[in-house]
């Protein structure tokens, strides 16, 4: 008897579920549809089916693929699976804004300084008599009213840095990377990302016969053509290269041919750098290190046996 009661209850609940209802259209929406006029930019398509039956098992996306390329041929060499919490976060413009403002504040030099009347050098003699000349009363030449006098409320060296919770900042890093990933603008290369300069040029450079101007001219032109071939150059919004440490040829090349992009060491990168230029080219170990150091918000304090406390870094699928 009790079993029958439970069965009835479950049937009733299933009837109330979203999936059981054949069509859910609101009258307001229907009324509006009648007077919508066709526009050139309107996207016509069926609304996505977001309703889900209780019978369907909810299997959210947990990992996304990341292809590791060789540079500069861009041949896909291997494949890794990365957690969606690392590289497939939804775009949060507010968090990116917080991070960029935080970095901007932090990098302000804050050295502007002006002298108050007490700091301006000179004699403190009274400039003119208190009375009898028909002029206003005037004390010393350091007065803020005088030319070359002190500044009343002028700037003084100070720290402009603001605060941001570490977890929010780390979320911003991964949000920026995810944004690039979603747009196909995050290109991961094998370790050892460097600019492959031709042997014949390097031989001449090692002999020191070319001179600085010619060397720079060669590297600049070579780099420009290389990036133009990849559609990564100036016309395509420049390219940011990120490596674990300083690679002489890549970094010198990018300094010489800076109109086509920039190269950054991992320590120099900020969230703002990840959002600038047309694409980010990063070597595998640098990406790994970047995500590893910026996942403080993913650590769970509650530990469940058998469950990981934080998502695993990229695992190889095809090696």
């Amino acid at each position: 008897m009790a079993g029958k009661g439970v069965k009835c209850l479950s049937e009733a609940l299933r009837g109330l579920s979203l999936g059981a209802q054949p069509c859910r259209t609101t009258p307001a929406r229907q009324a509006a549809m009648g007077c919508i006029r066709s526009m050139a930019t309107a996207v016509e398509g069926k609304p996505s089916n977001i309703t889900r039956s209780v019978d369907e098992v909810y299997t959210p996306l947990t990992t996304v693929p990341v292809t590791i390329h060789s540079f500069p041929t861009l041949e896909p060499r291997s494949l890794e699976a990365w957690s969606t919490k690392h590289l497939y976060l939804p775009l949060r413009r507010d968090i990116l804004h917080l991070a960029v403002v935080y970095e901007g504040d932090k990098t302000r030099q804050g050295t502007a300084s002006s002298k108050t009347r007490w700091e301006v050098a000179g004699s403190h003699r009274k400039m003119r008599p208190q009375k009898g000349l028909g002029h206003a009363r005037l004390g010393t030449r350091q007065s803020p009213l005088m030319r070359h006098g002190g500044k009343t409320f002028g700037p003084k060296p100070r720290d402009f840095s603001t605060k941001l919770n570490r977890k929010v900042y780390d979320l911003a890093w991964r949000t920026a990377l995810s944004y690039r990933y979603r747009r196909g603008e995050l290109i991961v290369t094998e370790d050892g990302l460097d600019l492959p300069l031709p042997d014949e040029f390097l031989y001449a450079a090692s002999k020191g016969v070319l001179g600085r101007e010619v060397e720079d001219g060669f590297v600049s032109k070579y780099l420009a053509e290389l990036l133009a071939g990849l559609q990564w150059g100036r016309e395509y919004g420049r390219t940011t290269f990120i490596t674990g440490d300083r690679r002489p040829n890549l970094f010198t090349g990018m300094e010489v041919g800076g109109e086509n992009g920039r190269a950054l060491e991992l320590d120099e990168v900020d969230v703002k750098d990840l959002l600038e230029t047309g694409r980010i080219v990063i070597e595998r170990s640098a990406l790994r290190e970047m995500i590893k150091t910026h996942s403080s918000d993913l650590v769970q304090r509650v530990q469940v046996p058998g469950l990981r406390t934080k998502p695993q870094l990229g695992t190889a699928i095809v090696q």
Partner: peptide
Amino acid sequence: LRAPAATITSAAAAPTPNPRMNDRRYLST
């Protein structure tokens, strides 16, 4: 072409020179 030396080894093991940081212009030959 000079293949990037560290494509075979790991980044940490790459034969990285130690350039003077204030020297802007530097190429590894």
